[in-house]
C-alpha cells in the first residue's frame, strides 16, 4: 500500500540509519531553524548559534547507530543541543547583553523579555523557554530535564506567573535587578 502521508521524523531517522542521505536532508530542513533558534535565544550570538546548530547535526551523523526508535527524534535532537549548550557554558562563555543578534522588530519589548527571563531561576527559565519557543510538550520537557511531568507543570506555571508581573512595561529602575 502506498501512503501519501509525510513521513514522520522517526521514519526518516530510521531511513537515515539505513544510509539514506535524503532522509537526513529532510530532517535537517525540518529542524535547522528550530535548533538554531534554540541556541540563538540562549547565547544571543548568531555566529556561535550557527556553529552549534551544525555541531548538533554533526553529532547526529556521527552517532546515527545510537538512536533508538523508542525516543522521539525531536527530543533526541534537543537532548544533543542541550548537552552542547551545557558544554559551551562550561567553557566560560559569557552572554553580552546588547551584543546582538536576534532579529526583532521591537527593541523595547525584546529588552523587557530578556530582562524578565534573566530574572527567572535557571531551571524554571529553561522549562519556560522549551515550552514557549521550542513548543515541547510537558512530557518531552520532563524527559529532557529528568523531571516528573507534574513538576514541569507546576514550575512552568510559576515561571509564567513570575513573568506576568515582570513583563509589565510600567516597571522602571526599581524593577531592575542590580548585578
Amino acid at each position: 500500500m502506498v501512503s501519501d502521508e509525510t513521513p514522520s521524523d522517526e521514519a526518516l531517522m530510521v531511513e537515515f540509519q539505513r544510509g539514506s542521505r535524503p532522509a537526513l536532508e529532510e530532517l535537517f530542513a525540518r529542524y535547522r531553524e528550530p535548533i538554531f533558534g534554540f541556541f540563538c535565544r540562549r547565547l544571543y550570538l548568531r555566529e556561535r548559534a550557527e556553529d552549534l546548530t551544525q555541531d548538533t547535526f554533526l553529532a547526529v551523523i556521527r552517532a546515527k547507530a545510537r538512536y533508538e526508535p523508542r525516543a522521539l527524534v525531536r527530543t533526541y535532537l534537543y537532548g544533543i543541543a542541550m548537552k552542547l549548550l551545557a558544554a559551551e557554558r562550561r567553557k566560560g562563555f559569557v552572554v553580552i547583553p546588547g551584543a546582538t543578534s536576534v532579529a526583532n522588530d521591537s527593541a523595547d519589548e525584546v529588552l523587557w523579555v530578556r530582562q524578565a527571563l534573566e530574572r527567572l531561576e535557571e531551571g524554571d527559565r529553561e522549562i519556560l523557554m522549551l515550552r514557549e519557543y521550542e513548543q515541547l510538550s510537558y512530557g518531552e520537557i520532563g524527559s529532557l530535564l529528568g523531571l516528573p511531568v507534574n513538576t514541569v507543570r507546576s514550575r512552568l506555571f510559576r515561571s509564567r506567573m513570575a513573568l506576568k508581573g515582570q513583563l509589565d512595561p510600567a516597571g522602571s529602575l526599581e524593577n531592575v535587578k542590580c548585578k
Partner: peptide
C-alpha cells in the same frame, strides 16, 4: 517578541 531571523546553517 524574542524572534530569531533565518539562519545560514548548512548540513555538515
Amino acid at each position: 517578541a524574542l524572534q530569531v531571523g533565518p539562519s545560514a546553517v548548512r548540513l555538515p
